[in-house]
Design a protein around this nucleic acid. Structure first.
Lengths: 340, 340
DNA sequence: TACTAGCACTCATGATGGTTGAGTGCCAAG
DNA sequence: CTTGGCACTCAACCATCATGAGTGCTAGTA
């Protein structure tokens, strides 16, 4: 592909992103600034179509980029613009400082992504597989009901109600918790569960019931983040002419509610440390075949723990979205990190 | 209004609920089973329209009920059917037993409401104004970061990260927590905050920073449930012909996201102990003027703490929705209650 | 050889107008 | 009071047509 074709492809995609309608040869010839006739442009466009970068919805309707076209565009033609001062200010204002509650920061990040992009924003919550158990508490709520509370080193708190056969006094429970903390505190959750499982095999004591439940809670904490993902702003898809009113929209909403496959896809993209794009069919996930996903992993204390990003139409202003997602990931990581 | 008019109104509304299209005189005459000619029906319908129960969208469409018509229908004509065995089974299966985690039960209730009604389901989370503080914990997370954990008698757990100027040892914090528990434990949250505020006026100690933050956390716990409401299944509105594709839908979604006014409306309906309906404009809330809200308060340990229900089109099968919402409220209350 | 002008062709879009059918209101007769 | 009849209304549907944006192809030009 020669220089002129690249320029025209770039110009065409930019125009299509801006306007949302197929781009014809006349308009492209005018706006590309190449002093070239529409007929010449048509020849180039025909070549680009043959090579799979463009497609026309019907005979007399100009052309739109394919996902191959978009891919070439973002890889070879796109110059990312730095985050606008205003967006940056907003980001910092909303997630730039350490909040007292991690959950709130995650929500804030999801919301701001959606607001600034006018698309759906998501945040995959930090996985806790490597979290370290900091503290355990057992509290009597009422007769034969014990509340178990787990705290990890990153400040995650999970709790669970345990029903017991017999009644335990406060002192008894405090002692159990203390024992638990001494034995298992400061160790990774995985180890705790594993050891607990082993230790429980040996003893037979009524208190076991509580420990067993506590173990289950720990397991839940690890399993739970298989699923957990915040997503917000799906309703913005209603405004997209390419989706609105069609069956695709419903499929997409259902798929997003389902989350499972989506989470799988995102976990894949956690491997790298860079912004990653799934354009159209690239995701290999049918409901997303009309959409693009821009995602970036975020790190807490130097370790990648989650991924965030946006889901929108293929036709999105990548040069702004990419730095925005990138910046949000950085800020979120910092906000959740110790050094923050 | 005579008996025949009532019968026709009932029949018309039932048909309109079933089919969703305006009902004409011919069809109504046939289906009402009164051996009456369409012309006669037309006369009756004209009267009903004059009295404000019906309206015709345009000259040559049949008629549809107004919100006044629906109101009369549910108050005077509707015979509520008992919950179907299948629905009942499903309800019990999903929320009929005490789950280990209150949050999960609330989510389950929201979900099942939405699923069974094919409308949006909501649950206003239990208010905690009268909750009693059961336990407080202060845990060192890292250097100069303390995690405060509050537990109420109903098993709510809230936590908050507090940054401090100086470092506190584990023993020091344990003592503070112990002191806190002895002084304030077993008292309503409101009192705790009030007393804490007073006590803090007198002393000047670095530990105050932690106590003050703890107090703020307590305040947040009380304030927070001004806002908290779970809602699920808004996307089902996409399937409604009366809303789909219109600006109304967008308004409605935005309003539901906003929550504030909605929460206000629902708190109103918490006063009674019965199922309550807001039909169309009755809610006095513009975005809901095409919708009906069916809500029922639920009680935990004999005290009304929240409200749940569904939001859907005015044209909804009230005779099934009402018992369903009622039953869900009962089950949820029981699931959250002590006697479970 | 590369570009361009011209031309015939395609096709979505939107306007126009006629037909259909469901439904109404009103009136006069039973 | 009920009913059949009749004129009327109006959304929905359909076919037709003009328009215009856009294309591919070809022949001519720099």
């Amino acid at each position: 592909m020669d220089e002129r074709a690249r320029h025209l492809l770039k110009s065409l995609i930019e125009q299509h992103i801006a306007k949302g309608v197929p781009v014809g040869s006349r308009q492209l010839a005018r706006d590309a600034g190449l002093n070239i006739s529409p007929a010449t442009v048509r020849n180039v466009m025909a070549d680009l179509e043959d090579e799979g970068y463009l497609i026309s919805p019907h005979t007399s309707a100009g052309r739109i980029p394919t996902h191959v076209g978009y891919r070439f565009f973002v890889d070879a033609l796109l110059r990312v613009v730095p985050l606008s001062a205003e967006s940056n200010r907003l980001l910092i204002h909303r997630i730039g400082f350490r909040a007292p509650d991690a959950e709130q920061v995650l929500h804030a990040a999801t919301g701001i992504l959606s607001e600034l992009t006018h698309m759906a924003g998501f945040v995959r919550v930090p996985r806790r597989a490597t979290r370290i158990l900091r503290h355990v508490d057992f509290i009597t709520l009422r007769e034969r009901e014990v509340l178990a509370i787990f705290v990890t080193d990153k400040g995650d708190v999970e709790n669970r109600l345990i029903r017991t056969e017999q009644h335990f006094g406060a002192a008894e429970l405090a002692q159990a918790a203390n024992c638990f903390n001494v034995t298992y505190g400061g160790r990774p959750l995985q180890d705790v569960i594993h050891n607990l499982q082993r230790d429980l095999q040996q003893s037979r004591h009524e208190m076991d019931r509580i420990l067993r439940s506590a173990m289950e809670l720990g397991e839940e904490m690890l399993e739970e983040d298989q699923q957990r993902m915040l997503i917000e702003g799906e309703f913005q898809w209603l405004d997209l002419p390419e989706l609105a009113g069609s069956e695709r929209l419903r499929e997409l909403l259902a798929a997003v509610r389902q989350k499972r496959d989506l989470v799988h896809l995102l976990d894949e993209s956690m491997r790298g440390s860079e912004v990653r794009l799934f354009i159209g069919e690239e995701s290999g996930y049918a409901p997303l075949s009309d959409c693009s996903v821009v995602s970036a992993p975020y790190s807490v204390d130097g370790e990648v723990v989650g991924v965030l990003g946006v889901i929108g139409p293929m036709r999105m202003p990548y040069q702004q979205i990419i730095p925005l997602v990138d910046g949000t990931a950085q800020l979120l990581g910092r906000a959740l990190s110790q050094s923050g």
